[in-house]
């Protein structure tokens, strides 16, 4: 069944159709909210809230955009609102990598290993999650949308209600900021660069 058919059915109250939409999109919504908040518990809550809002709002969704774009806007707004309400800085060090909990024994990568080796990859992923925490909210939002939901610049512009040119330049700035955070973190060697 096409997404248009599913959304039309779900808008009329068909929970089975909605369940299929959940199945298709929960991973991305979860990933998006996880990378934005750094907390699996909050990501679960925000994912539920997003789909709750989607269920309620579907009668008003008239395919002005793709369903996923609309859904990610709900998710991004929910996460952004949540983060603004949260007063305390949350530790973003608790996010398990690639679904494997607790296996963070490798603190110092052995640089004799193949750079493409598993240890270095996981170290980099951990550093990226830590680095995301150090970005400004603006940079984090836009970079997470780009890297973890696969939205195009045009779609991100729709989700965040920005000009596409702004999206392009802001993503570039966010990448630069993340790179700087990684270099300061000390676990990112990468190829030599003059800065």
């Amino acid at each position: 069944m096409t997404e248009e058919e599913l959304t039309a059915l779900a808008a009329r109250g068909d929970q089975d159709a909605f369940a299929q939409l959940v199945e298709r999109h929960q991973g991305k919504v979860y990933g998006l909210t996880l990378r934005l908040t750094g907390s699996p518990e909050d990501a679960m809550d925000l994912t539920q809230e997003t789909f709750f809002n989607a269920w309620r709002g579907l009668p008003n969704f008239h395919a002005e955009s793709k369903f996923s774009t609309w859904l990610y806007r709900l998710a991004a707004n929910a996460a952004i609102d949540f983060l603004r309400r949260e007063r305390r800085r949350r530790s973003l060090l608790t996010v398990p990598l690639t679904g494997e909990d607790g296996d963070r024994a490798l603190d110092i990568p052995d640089r004799r290993l193949d750079p493409q080796g598993e240890a270095e990859r996981r170290e980099l992923q951990g550093a990226i999650q830590r680095g995301l925490a150090r970005l400004t909210a603006e940079h984090r939002e836009i970079l997470v949308l780009r890297e973890f939901t696969g939205l195009s610049y045009a779609e991100i512009a729709q989700v965040l209600r920005l000009e596409e040119g702004t999206v392009k330049s802001r993503i570039a700035r966010a990448r630069l900021a993340l790179r700087r955070a990684l270099l300061e973190d000390g676990n990112f060697s990468g190829p030599p660069s003059s800065t």
Binding site: Q26, G27, Y30, G31, L34, R35, A43, M44, T47, L97, T98, G99, R121, L124, Q125, I128, Q129, E147, F148, R175, L176, L178, R179, L182, F188, G190, P191, S193
Partner: peptide, 17 residues
């Protein structure tokens, strides 16, 4: 190279619900 490495690493960080 550096930005590309970060970008590829992000692509592998699939969050499993």
């Amino acid at each position: 190279e550096q930005l590309g490495q970060i970008h590829r690493a992000c692509g592998e960080m699939e969050a499993v619900p």
